[in-house]
C-alpha cells in the first residue's frame, strides 16, 4: 500500500514547475530592471518607487479598493435578506430558488457581463454606476449561496428555544441567527472582494473604456505596452494588499468567534 504514495511524486514536480515557478517569476520581474531576460538580472526597487511616486497609480489602486469594498457591502445588503428569505421557504421551494440562482452562473461570465450593455442602453448612468451594476450582477450569487448555506445549517430547535426563553423575532435574529450565519458572510466576503479588486473585464465592457481599475493597469502593462517589470510590480502590490485584507478578515472572524463563546 505504501507504494501508492509514489503516485503523488510526478504531481509534486509539476506543481513546483507550474505553480511555484510562475509565482516566483512575478516577484523576480517586479524587482528587476527593464529588459525581459532571466540572465540579465539587476535588482531594483525602481518599479515600486515609480508606482507610489506617481499621482495616477495610487489613485487607481484606491479607486479599485473602494469599488471592491462598496461592491462587497452592497452584496451583503442585497444578498443576506435574499438568503434569509430562501432559508424560510418550504424545503422544495428552497431547492428551486438555489437552482435558479446557480443557473445563470453556468453561462460564460463575459457573455453575462456583455448582456448588460443592451439593458444599460436605456438608462443614463455614469460609467462608475455601470461598473457597479456589472460587479454586483457577477458577485451577488456567491454571497447569496454562502449565506444561505450557513443559514440552512442552523438547528431549528435553537430558534424555538430562543422563543421559549422569551426572545421576540428581532432579538432571536440578532442574538441567535445572525451570529450563527456570520461564517457564511465571511466566506461570501472573500468570494466577492477578491475578484472585485482585480476585475478588469467588467470595467472594460461596461465602463466604456474610460473607467480604469488596477486590473486594467496590469492588463495594459502586459498586453499593450509590454512593460512586464512594472506590470509585475503592480500585481505584486495588489496581491500583497489582498493578502493583508484576507488576514485582517480572518482575524476579525476569529475575534468574533471568541466574543461569541
Amino acid at each position: 500500500m505504501k507504494s501508492f504514495s509514489k503516485m503523488a511524486y510526478p504531481y509534486v514536480v509539476w506543481m513546483c514547475v507550474m505553480i511555484i515557478a510562475p509565482m516566483l517569476m512575478i516577484v523576480f520581474y517586479a524587482f528587476s530592471a527593464k529588459g525581459n531576460d532571466l540572465l540579465a538580472f539587476q535588482f531594483t526597487f525602481e518599479n515600486f518607487a515609480r508606482f507610489f511616486s506617481d499621482t495616477i497609480f495610487p489613485s487607481v489602486l484606491w479607486r479599485s479598493l473602494k469599488m471592491a469594498f462598496v461592491t462587497t457591502a452592497l452584496c451583503i445588503l442585497l444578498g443576506y435578506p435574499t438568503a434569509y428569505i430562501f432559508a424560510k421557504m418550504k424545503p422544495n421551494n428552497q431547492a428551486i430558488m438555489i437552482l435558479l440562482v446557480t443557473l445563470p452562473m453556468w453561462i460564460n461570465v463575459l457573455v453575462r457581463t456583455y448582456a448588460w450593455r443592451g439593458l444599460l442602453g436605456y438608462v443614463d448612468l455614469s460609467s462608475e454606476m455601470r461598473v457597479y451594476v456589472g460587479m454586483i450582477y457577477n458577485f451577488l450569487p456567491f454571497m447569496i449561496l454562502e449565506v444561505y448555506t450557513s443559514l440552512s445549517k442552523i438547528d431549528p430547535n435553537l430558534i424555538v428555544a430562543s422563543h421559549d426563553l422569551g426572545a421576540d423575532d428581532g432579538e432571536t435574529f440578532r442574538r441567535v441567527i445572525l451570529p450563527l450565519s456570520l461564517p457564511g458572510v465571511v466566506s461570501g466576503i472573500t468570494l466577492v472582494f477578491l475578484p472585485a479588486v482585480s476585475s478588469f473585464f467588467i470595467p472594460k465592457l461596461l465602463g466604456g473604456g474610460q473607467y480604469v481599475l488596477i486590473g486594467n493597469l496590469i492588463e495594459n502593462y502586459f498586453i499593450t505596452s509590454g512593460d512586464w517589470n512594472f506590470g509585475s510590480a503592480i500585481s505584486l502590490i495588489m496581491a500583497v494588499i489582498i493578502l493583508i485584507s484576507m488576514f485582517v478578515m480572518r482575524k476579525m472572524d476569529y475575534s468574533n468567534k471568541e466574543a461569541g463563546d
Partner: peptide, 15 residues
C-alpha cells in the same frame, strides 16, 4: 485559488 486570476495568469505568461 487564493490569488486573483490575473496574478496566476501573468505568472504563466512570464513563465
Amino acid at each position: 485559488m487564493l490569488n486573483p486570476d490575473i496574478v496566476t495568469a501573468i505568472g504563466f505568461m512570464l513563465f
